[in-house]
Simulated assay, not measured.
Amino acid sequence: MDIALILLLAMLIDAVFGEPNWLWDHVPHPAVLIGNAIGWADRKFNKGNAKTAGVLLLIALVIIGWWVGGMIEWLGAIPTILAAAILIAQKSLAEHVAAVGQALRRSLEDGRREVAKIVGRDTTDMSEPEVARAAIESGAENLSDGVIAPIFWFLVAGLPGLLAYKTVNTADSMIGYKNEKYEDFGWASARFDDLINWIPARLTALLIMISHLDFNRWSSIRDDASLHRSPNAGWPEAAMARVLDIALAGPRSYDGEMRDYSYVNEFGRRSIGGNDIDLAVQALWRSWALMLVIVGLIALI
């Protein structure tokens, strides 16, 4: 079966059924298995010459991800479709972001509790606009990392490419921090994750922009993205900020320490809330739908 057709079916299955939680009640999710392996490596090898150990870990993760993906592909189209559907997290992402908007309409405290499930920043003292910004930023960034990038790498290299990408992206989320503990051990994973997300991040921004029939603000999105602390996350965030006409990013607190980050789309609306989160969720689906059309056209060609 054609690789694009397999991907098309996987995207549709994920969009309809989402995460099969009944399955994860009995067997561990692939992301959990990857995370457990990285956690073990962290405890075992993050000492001494940690940078070399981190490079070797990255190589091992890519090889193992590629090999497992190849083995599943060898089993046939149906296992490949199901595996890809599990690893493309569009419906789960949209549901988690939408839940913050629903909770925020009930109360600010409910919104804080819900957004704490999807962001790593301090949420205890967040205002309503800060809760909304955090949810929308998480949605935009994870549209790139959790949906468009896996789709892109599946198109490039099939399930081996998708699984190799997932292992590296999971490693970056666990050990890719610029702090004393991970500056050396997580260096290779963080840098390689930046590399493999370079095209998907910009593709995601383009999808957000085109799906909203906004063809004139690419230079503004590029300029805003350059203000972001990440070489990639700023692109989908800047595009989302522009199409919703809101300001994203800005100051936030991590571990009790305020970080004075620049705003993305600085002059956009800052008084935002649950309704803006709903609009962001719609943007996630519109961008996904445009990507679905592109994959469908590739399958036809």
Score class of each variant (00 low, 15 high):
14 D>L: 04
16 V>M: 06
19 E>T: 12
20 P>C: 10
22 W>G: 09
24 W>C: 13
25 D>T: 14
34 I>C: 03
36 N>G: 09
38 I>H: 03
50 A>F: 06
51 K>N: 11
53 A>F: 01
54 G>E: 11
54 G>L: 07
65 G>M: 10
68 V>P: 07
81 I>C: 01
87 L>H: 06
89 A>R: 05
92 S>P: 10
93 L>Q: 06
94 A>V: 05
100 V>T: 00
109 E>S: 14
109 E>K: 09
112 R>L: 02
117 K>V: 05
124 T>F: 13
128 E>F: 00
135 A>S: 07
136 I>Q: 02
142 N>Q: 02
142 N>R: 01
144 S>D: 10
145 D>G: 07
152 F>I: 02
155 L>Y: 14
157 A>G: 14
160 P>M: 10
160 P>G: 07
163 L>C: 11
164 A>T: 09
165 Y>D: 01
165 Y>H: 05
169 N>H: 06
174 M>Q: 13
176 G>N: 04
186 G>L: 05
187 W>F: 14
194 D>P: 09
194 D>V: 12
197 N>D: 12
206 L>C: 11
207 L>Q: 03
209 M>H: 04
210 I>C: 00
211 S>D: 06
218 W>K: 15
225 A>T: 02
226 S>T: 11
228 H>A: 07
230 S>W: 04
232 N>T: 08
238 A>I: 03
240 M>S: 02
240 M>K: 02
241 A>D: 13
246 I>H: 08
249 A>E: 10
252 R>C: 11
252 R>E: 11
253 S>D: 13
257 E>V: 15
259 R>D: 12
263 Y>Q: 00
272 I>K: 03
273 G>H: 08
274 G>Q: 05
281 V>W: 01
284 L>W: 02
295 V>C: 03
301 I>R: 13
